[in-house]
Design a protein around this nucleic acid. Sequence first.
DNA 1: ATGTTTTCTATTGTATACAAAAAACCATTA
DNA 2: TAATGGTTTTTTGTATACAATAGAAAACAT
Lengths: 212, 212
Amino acid sequence: MEQLITRKNLSDQVHDHIKRMILSGELKGGERVPEASLSKLFGVSRTPLREALKKLSDYGLIYLKPRSYAEVVIITEDEARQIAEVRLDLEILAAKLFIKNAAPEDFQELRNISEQCLKLNEEGDKGASFELDSLFHMKIAEGCGNFCLYEIFEKLDARIQLLRLNQKLTQSSLADYIKQHSILIAAMEKGEGNLIESILTSHIIHDFHASS
Amino acid sequence: MEQLITRKNLSDQVHDHIKRMILSGELKGGERVPEASLSKLFGVSRTPLREALKKLSDYGLIYLKPRSYAEVVIITEDEARQIAEVRLDLEILAAKLFIKNAAPEDFQELRNISEQCLKLNEEGDKGASFELDSLFHMKIAEGCGNFCLYEIFEKLDARIQLLRLNQKLTQSSLADYIKQHSILIAAMEKGEGNLIESILTSHIIHDFHASS
DNA sequence: ATGTTTTCTATTGTATACAAAAAACCATTA
DNA sequence: TAATGGTTTTTTGTATACAATAGAAAACAT
C-alpha cells in the first residue's frame, strides 16, 4: 500500500499507462503490443516495458505468446460468463463483510460515488461514469476489511472494464443499472442479506447480458 | 495453458525454483532475496531473475520494497484469517460448480488423491501429503469449469501452502483433516449443498486455527 | 497455381554495464 | 552512551548490446 505514494519507477508508470490505453480502447483487443515501438513511444528502454507487459499479462489484459509477440486479450463470451459467475459470488461476500466492518463515512462515500456516477451518465460522459461504477464496487471491496478479497477484485475489475468497452448500452438502460447502487446501499444499511443477494444477482446479470 | 509445455524461458524456470524454495521452507519468511546472489546461484543474469521476483511479488510470496531489498513475506495472523475467509467462500462456490460440471472420472481422481494423501501422512511424509492436499483443492477448482476461479485459487494456494509451513500439526490431527476430503466428495456426489458448506467450513477453519 | 523449403527479418530472451538510491558502517559530538 | 552526520557499500533501476527464435517473405519444386 505504501509504495502507492513513492511509486515512481518506470515499470509501474508504463504499466499504468498501457493499462489505461487498453481500458480506454486506444489499444484494441487482438492488437499487437511490440516492446520496441512502445519503448520508443514512452521514451524508456525495453527493460521496464517488459516488466510492465509481464504484469499486464498476469492481470489478464494482454496475452504474452512466448518467444513471439504480445497482444491485447480478447475476452470471449464464455470467459465473460465465468468472470460474472465469480464476481457475483465475491460481491455478495464483500457486501456482507462491508456491513460488519464499514464505518458510517464509508456508506456516505458510497452514496456520493453512486450519485455522481448517475449524474455523469445523465451528462453523457460514459467513460467517467464507467470509472465511477468501477470505483463504487472497489470501495465496497476496500471497506469490507479483507485485503485479500480487495486484491482479487482489483484483478477482476480490469477485465470487467475491458468487457464494458464492447457493451453497447443506452443511456437510460445504464441509468437503471446505476440506480441499483442506491438500492444496494439501502439493503446493506438494513443488513438484509437475502435482499443484497438478489439485488447483486440482477445487477451482475445485467452487466453480463449487456456484454454478450 | 499451452506454454506449460514449452515454457523453457529462464524467468519462469527461476520463478518456479524460487517458489519451491519458499514453499519448502528453504527460504524463510523475512529472509532477504537479493538479485545478485540468486542470479549467481542459478547461473543466470539478473534480468530473468528480476522478472521472476516481480511475479512472485504479484503472487504475494515476496515483498518487493521499492528501490530497496526484496524479502520473503511473513503472513500475519490477520492476513491468514482474511485468506481463510475468502477461501471458504470460493471453495463452496467451486464445489457447487464442480457438481454441475465434473465428469465421473473427476470424482474418481479426487478419491485417488484423497486416499494417497492419507497414506502419505500415515507414512510420515508431511511434505508430500501437504502437496496432495493442495492438489485436491486445486482439482476441484480445475474441474469446476471456471478458469477465472481456478486462477484465483492458484494465487491463494501459494499463500496457503506458505501458512502450512508454520503449522505444527500432529499426524493424527492431520489424518482427521484429510479424512474430511472423503466426506466432502460424498456430499458433492449426492449434491447436498448445505452439507458441503458445513463440511468446508469446518475444514477451512481447521486449517486456519492450526496456523494461528 | 499451389504447396514446400529456405532465407531473411522482426521480435523477443538474456547478459552486462552503468546510474541512482537506500542501507550499513563509522567517526564525531553532545 | 546515544544520537547524528557523512561516507562507503550494497542493492536495485534502467539502458543497451547481443543471441536465439518465431513469423514473414521469397525461391523453388511439383
